[in-house]
Simulated assay, not measured.
Amino acid sequence: MDRRPGGRSARVRDAVRQATIAELAEHGYSGLTVENVAIRSGVHKTTVYRRWGSVEGLIADALELAREEPWPIPDTGSFRDDLREIVRLVQSGFADPVAGPISAAFVTAAVQNGDAARSLHDFFVARHEQAAEVVRRAVERGELAADTDGAEVIRMAVAPIYYRLFITHEPVTERDAERAADAAVAAARAGVLSAPTSDPR
């Protein structure tokens, strides 16, 4: 048992985070309640309210946990294949019966709450930086120009997936994912996604 100062606090936080994710998986954002998270986590409801305040606070904290988890980055030896793998990973994640509702709930919460939006922004910044490794490798192999903006390549590649899911509410197939990746590859190779030389702001 962890007897260090703050050990119990860390265990409480982890239990609540895991309970939040489990509740999101089962009930989605609209069904998430502080009461159910408290019951599932075994943490008293007043403690959950005091530390997290609301379901949006719970989601923001769960996103922080998700941000800390490493993302599997493909290394096929080909920029195109690597990027296709990344976009297919996003597409299949939303299609997953367990992970999909959780990811969708994070996006839904961010639309409705500023704290959740900031947490989702930080989550994506971390994910884009991790995934940009495939761009850095492509530059080293001579497939892309040295000034290619890695994070922007990833944004462009995955954006069509989110557009279909959350704007037009269309199904997203593996072929859709591959086409989105291929479009970003073409743009990167054409020099459209180079990093800005200075901040225009």
Score class of each variant (00 low, 15 high):
Ile86Phe: 00
Thr20Phe: 11
Val125Gln: 05
Ser194Phe: 00
Tyr162Ser: 11
Asp75Ala: 15
Val43Glu: 06
Arg118Cys: 02
Leu65Gly: 06
Arg80Lys: 10
Arg3Cys: 05
Ser119Trp: 08
Arg137Asp: 02
Arg40Ile: 12
Val16Gly: 05
Thr148Tyr: 03
Gln18Lys: 13
Ser54Tyr: 01
Gly7Met: 00
Gly114Val: 03
Arg17Thr: 13
Glu133Leu: 02
Arg80Cys: 03
Arg179Met: 04
Gly31Asp: 12
Val134Cys: 03
Ala25His: 07
Glu26Cys: 10
Ala132His: 05
Ser103Asn: 04
Ala110Ser: 15
Thr76Ala: 14
Ala19His: 12
Glu140Leu: 06
Arg11Met: 08
Asn113Ala: 14
Gly53Lys: 03
Arg189Trp: 00
His128Lys: 12
Gly28Trp: 08
Pro200His: 04
Arg179Asn: 01
Val125Phe: 05
Ile73Pro: 02
Ser9Glu: 09
Arg141Trp: 09
Ile161Glu: 13
Val98Gly: 07
Leu144Phe: 08
Leu165Pro: 11
Asp115Val: 03
Arg40Thr: 15
Gly191His: 02
Gln91Ala: 15
Ser103Lys: 10
Arg137Trp: 03
Ala186Gly: 09
Ile73Cys: 02
His27Arg: 15
Pro196Thr: 05
Arg13Cys: 04
Ala138Thr: 08
Val55Ser: 00
Glu56Ala: 14
Ala183Tyr: 12
Arg40Gln: 13
Arg51Thr: 09
Arg118Gly: 14
Arg141Met: 06
Thr47Arg: 01
Ser194Pro: 03
Arg84Phe: 05
Ala99Pro: 07
Phe79Cys: 10
Glu129Arg: 14
Asp149Tyr: 08
Arg155Asp: 14
Ala117His: 14
Ala146Met: 12
Met156Glu: 10
Thr76Phe: 14
Ala187Ile: 01
Glu56Val: 05
Asp115Thr: 04
Ala146Pro: 07
Gly28Asn: 13
Arg8His: 06
Thr148Trp: 04
Asp2Pro: 04
Asp14Glu: 12
Arg179Ser: 00
Arg40Phe: 09
Leu193Trp: 00
Gly100His: 02
Val192Gly: 00
Ser78Pro: 09
Pro101Tyr: 04
Phe166Val: 09
Thr33Asn: 04
Leu83Tyr: 01
Val172Tyr: 03
Ala157Lys: 00
Ala95Ser: 11
Gly28Thr: 15
Asp147Lys: 11
Val43Ile: 12
Ala145Thr: 10
Asp81Pro: 07
Asp75Met: 10
Arg127Glu: 11
Arg4Phe: 01
Gln18Ala: 15
Asn36Gln: 15
